[in-house]
Nucleic acid binder design. Structure first.
Lengths: 245, 245
DNA sequence: CGAAGGCTTGATAGACCTCAAACACAGTGG
DNA sequence: CCACTGTGTTTGAGGTCTATCAAGCCTTCG
């Protein structure tokens, strides 16, 4: 595979993702493809950047599943977001120089590292790309807000259903979900850390959802027989994802 | 008062605030002061923008207290952030064209409305201002994340203490808090809606905090006799606010 | 086959919610 | 001046959701 093709293959999840939220010209897309980046394959459960780090590059997820999390002083963990191919979970480090949380892999993942200076240079030359990435960080924030609603006001049952809906829509937007499901390599413990629940309770609620035939979750693979029902169960409205179309 | 002075007075909370998170030149500050804006005084409990609106201007808080919130399908409310003078709670509407939540006043407030087109024009001419405001939205997102941690993993006691700490630091950064307290015109019901708690439980926990001498909260005014103790009670670390100094 | 990690189940406990009512206080109007 | 009203605070009692602890089970993998 040529370097050019390799690059094309690397950035294509990002192109897919940006295309789902913003309209870019061919020139702008090409500029993204031309970005220098270092590709790195990482095992599950490795940190990409850590709390208090001062990163000098951003990480773009190419494959696998990544999360943003923080360990509290008493050792418990809160996961604050899941990141899929096309996402740049630490884009914020461009303007926030010290990390206030960590980012790590949940499954074997391949990651592209893009130096800040190259990204900054690019955004200076292409204001439209800067707008696209600003918009991306704002959608990230919208997702945080939606999670706050879940953590603050929704039951465990709704929270789990809501998360499964969100990932279905986001996965679909980058071509990683079929009409009725996707790969979800998460343990029940990790789900609990994201939703503010204990592992035991996650297990019980998943059984309810399975029992009602709303989901089929087995071996890291989620099947959704009745998308309508899952949305109702999670009180889900995809407006906050701000997808085009 | 001349128009120029009026403008100066209007934008000064914004200058204070941006100064606390970013370094701006005098020319850039002047450009902000020169922004055209419409000033509006609003009663408590009025909406500034509503869920599903498509605003064509941003609102800058000049005085008072404003919040970001969403009403769920069952009628309950989740407050997702408090905004004080100098904040632009709907800055995101520059790039996210449909609101996915509402913004409204909590006390009598004065608000400056700045048309998107003028703001966009300004950011095009001053890339450094664009960076400052992008950074501001990223800090907003960092605050969402911290609230997620609270909602997901902290006890009611910690959550309340943490919020009071956050507001002390933010108020102080714009000159609205003394060393030991600030005006907090919030009802216990509003606190509950922000923290995912019932009014009754907020009341009980506040009594605990008062009983321990950690806070004195009366008539919309918060006094903090022991700042150290409050930080410990809330497991508070201001790093996520990304203030300079 | 044994070990490790994840899943499942049961029993008990606690944090927080809901309902209901009383209380405090400021503003209003006769 | 004093009832009257409305909003916010406080208190009590009972209930529920979810956590914690503890153990057994299942699958994968070396």
């Amino acid at each position: 595979m040529s370097v050019a093709m390799h690059r094309q293959a690397s950035t294509s999840p990002l192109l897919w993702k940006l295309d789902s939220i913003f309209s870019l010209s061919d020139e702008e897309k090409q500029a993204l493809v031309d970005l220098p980046m270092r590709i790195k394959v990482m095992e599950a459960n490795c940190d990409i950047v850590r709390d208090r780090d001062k990163p000098s590059e951003c990480c773009l997820v190419l494959s696998g599943l990544v999360c943003r999390y923080k360990i509290l002083s008493d050792g418990r963990r809160q996961i604050m977001g899941f990141y899929i191919p096309g996402d740049i979970p630490d884009l914020q480090s461009l303007h926030l120089h010290v990390m206030d949380h960590s980012v790590g892999t949940l499954s074997t993942s391949s990651i592209a590292l893009i130096p800040h200076e190259n990204l900054r240079d690019l955004l200076g030359r292409y204001p439209n790309l800067a707008a696209a990435l600003w918009r991306d960080t704002l959608i990230d924030a919208a997702i945080f807000r939606e999670w706050m609603i879940g953590l603050g006001r929704r039951s465990a049952y709704q929270r789990i259903a809501h998360l499964l809906c969100e990932l279905q829509v986001r996965m679909k937007a980058v071509g990683l979900a079929s009409e009725s499901g996707y790969e979800l390599p998460l343990t029940q413990n990790e789900l609990g850390d994201a939703l503010g629940l204990s592992t035991v309770h996650v297990n019980r609620v998943l059984q309810d959802l399975r029992g009602e035939g709303v989901i089929v979750l087995r071996g890291g693979s989620l099947h959704i027989p009745d998308w309508e029902a899952l949305q109702v169960a999670g009180d889900f409205d995809p407006a906050y994802l701000h997808l085009r179309r």
